[in-house]
Design a protein around this nucleic acid. Structure first.
Lengths: 288, 288
DNA sequence: AACTGTGAAAACTTTCACAGCA
DNA sequence: TGCTGTGAAAGTTTTCACAGTT
């Protein structure tokens, strides 16, 4: 949590605390996106990046990116750009990722297995340390190098594994019970793939990823674009026909991919075709 | 905006068109969330719901909900509330869901199978009509009542199946190629689970669900709350200790679950404990 | 009396455009 | 010169509070 990267010498918790409090929601959602791009750049051995380059890769405009980064304090060098490694470390720090996270997975079905197998997971500092299920057939089986354990042993296992995040990938009808068990075991951050809202103490952060919501947003955009296309066709037949990899209308250009949350937070950021933004909030499969 | 449902008689396309254009992004992301709650209410046989009840269930405040619904035209009855069935139909209409959607899935691995098995999917009007993979071992196997087909046959199959949405659940390194095939086959709406941004024509809507982003947002909230808790503890030790299912500080109360997109659109909406909001945009696993 | 629909105010976010530093 | 960091303007979203309807 604490920490600063540029300035040597210890920075107090005060500093980071202040920073975290004042970072706008919208900005936080995008920081995670910048991080992904930075990781790619780092893999490619790129040492320095300008706000313009980074912004394009992340699907936002450069003014927004610079404003976002300005909330984290000075990160770049004028006339030069941002040091990829430094900026990356700084963002990880602010997002509370620098220590990495130990994750327990509840539900070893298809979704659960898909999740542990998801490479971007470990690559981004999330280590699955335990897998649980309530199906006797499943318990004991090896999944991703771990043995599936009985969800009844959760409390005890948590004491031993010390996870910071739990991922809930169980059927709808088992979700609330599993959630209660996680809460009882002391987990404070839960990412749930159940469509229904889970009841949990206010002190526990439950984030929901709802695939259907993402699909619905996709549906809306399609409906809206179809509309626009009709309008355009009515007025400018050739222009509309020549679409291909061409430009999109300004109105829809701001739209793109992101999922604020795993599959979700909704109202997320938007983005242009190759990269999308708007995590959340909206976007995203994050749903209420 | 225009439009009326109560009134019998055909409503023109003009009307719906105008409505869609003017609905704020943030509102659209939340409509999908309201829909889920409405579906639950309908299942429970609840005929009428007030803005307050619906808002609480969706994790937003009632003023926001009423404002959101006002963009769809008059939907309720003053002094009474909203007709659950009517409101549901109206929202589905606006989101372009009323005709339902035919979905093709590319990638029959764990994630793909988890997705077709996901009940909330079909229940919300999305019907999987085709499953594709490029693994010879996989092709021909039955999954969810469908036979896995060769992704090479996609173009041909699309002509036959007429899907409106494609879900991409393949490994990172195969994602761009699969995306290109979908685009070539004429798909216009793609929900991708690949972490990387996909290159596609501007006319194609690509929505990304990135699980890692959701986890990162969860990490940030935890870091921020830990901070607040420290502050609270320093000042009010007992109050902080008595957390249980107690109230959360106003600052963090606004936070909750949602994933604007499947797993995100970023910056999505937030919500209170039992129900969360802020799709996507942002919320959600929607990422840039 | 109960509850919706909505202008107007407040809060938040994005964009502009430029001063300032390397 | 090139690019960051940032006030100030513009645009969007949320909240308030109340008039209007049943």
């Amino acid at each position: 949590m604490t920490e600063q990267h540029e300035t040597p010498g210890g920075v107090s918790g005060e500093t980071l605390r202040a920073v975290q409090k004042d970072i706008p929601q919208a900005t936080v959602a995008r920081l995670a996106a910048y991080l992904r791009v930075l990781a790619m750049l780092a893999d490619d051995g790129v040492p320095i990046v300008s706000s313009e380059e980074l912004a394009v890769a992340a699907g936002v405009n450069s003014a927004k990116l610079r404003k976002d980064l300005s909330f984290l304090g000075p990160n770049g060098v004028r006339g030069v750009g941002y040091d990829v490694a430094k900026l990356r470390a700084r963002i990880e720090d602010v997002l509370g990722l620098s220590e990495g996270h130990r994750v327990v997975l509840v539900g070893a079905g298809n979704l659960g297995r898909a999740l542990v197998g998801y490479g971007g997971f470990r690559r981004r500092g999330f280590t699955v340390v335990g897998i649980f299920d309530n199906d006797p057939e499943m318990i004991g089986l090896p999944v991703a190098g771990l043995e599936v354990r009985d969800v009844a042993d959760l409390a005890e296992a948590v004491a031993e594994l010390r996870p910071t995040i739990a991922v809930l990938a169980v059927p709808e009808d088992a979700a609330q019970q599993a959630c209660d068990q996680l809460v009882a075991a002391g987990l404070q951050s839960i990412l749930s793939f159940a469509a229904l809202g889970l009841q949990a103490p206010a002190s526990v952060e439950v984030r929901r990823v709802d695939l259907a919501v993402e699909m619905q947003l996709l549906s809306f955009e399609r409906a809206r674009n179809a509309e626009n296309d009709n309008d355009a066709l009515a007025v400018l037949p050739e222009a509309a026909a020549a679409s291909g990899r061409a430009a999109r209308s300004p109105a829809s250009a701001a739209r793109a991919a992101t999922v604020p949350a795993a599959i979700t937070r909704s109202a997320g950021p938007r983005a242009t075709s190759h990269q999308a933004m708007e995590p959340t909030s909206k976007g995203s499969v994050v749903t209420p």
